[in-house]
Amino acid sequence: MIAQPVHAYGVVAASASSVTTVDLPYVARIEQLRVQAGQPVKRGTPLFVVQADPAAVVAAAQAKSAAQRASSSCASCERGAQRATAARHRQRTCDHRRTA
């Protein structure tokens, strides 16, 4: 904080070391700013509120659903492969006993 006024020409900007990038996993827009420029804040203080683009919300829900279906399908295939392997093993065991 500057204790006395300074008159100068130029541009006031934040230093690169104090700027933080916020990445969201979806398209959104800032709906509300909760602080003013230059306002001191404590760690954890909400700075803004974002509103997700409705199309992004739908796309995210569809992607999550597709991932869950794929995971379920994969698990089903794995169980089927395990049953088939066990059946082949039992068949070989039976064949081996018949020939012995």
Rank of each mutant, 00 (worst) to 15 (best):
I30L: 09
H7F: 09
A28Y: 00
T99P: 02
R97E: 10
Q68I: 04
H7R: 14
C77A: 12
G10C: 01
T20M: 04
R83D: 06
R34Y: 05
T85E: 10
V35C: 05
V11N: 03
F48C: 09
I2Q: 14
A37D: 11
A61F: 00
A14Q: 11
R43P: 08
F48A: 12
V41P: 07
C74P: 00
A13P: 00
A81N: 06
V35K: 05
T20R: 12
D95T: 11
A13Q: 10
S72R: 11
A63H: 08
V50L: 06
H96T: 15
A8C: 06
D95V: 05
M1P: 01
Q62I: 01
A87S: 13
A100M: 15
A28H: 00
T93K: 12
G80M: 10
R98N: 03
R98T: 04
A70R: 07
V27W: 02
D53Q: 03
A70C: 05
V58R: 08
S15M: 05
T85Y: 12
I30C: 08
Q32L: 14
D23R: 13
V35D: 06
A16E: 10
C77D: 09
F48T: 01
A86G: 06
T93S: 05
S73D: 12
A59E: 12
D95A: 15
V35G: 02
P54C: 01
V50K: 03
H7Q: 09
C74N: 06
Q36I: 14
Q32D: 02
S71T: 15
R43S: 15
A37W: 04
C77E: 08
A37N: 08
Q68K: 11
C77P: 00
S17G: 05
A8D: 09
T21W: 05
A66V: 05
V57E: 05
G44W: 11
L33R: 11
F48H: 03
Q51Y: 01
R83W: 10
A28W: 02
S18I: 09
E78K: 08
T45W: 05
T45A: 10
T45D: 13
P40G: 06
V49S: 09
S15D: 14
R69S: 13
R34P: 01
A75T: 08
G10L: 04
S17A: 14
R97M: 13
A63S: 06
A70M: 04
R97V: 15
P25C: 11
A63W: 02
V35N: 03
K64T: 05
R88M: 10
A59I: 02
S71W: 13
T21F: 04
A61K: 02
Q36C: 06
M1F: 04
S76D: 07
T20K: 08
R92E: 14
V11G: 00
L47F: 07
A70S: 11
S18N: 06
P5W: 03
D23E: 14
L24G: 08
Q4M: 04
T85R: 15
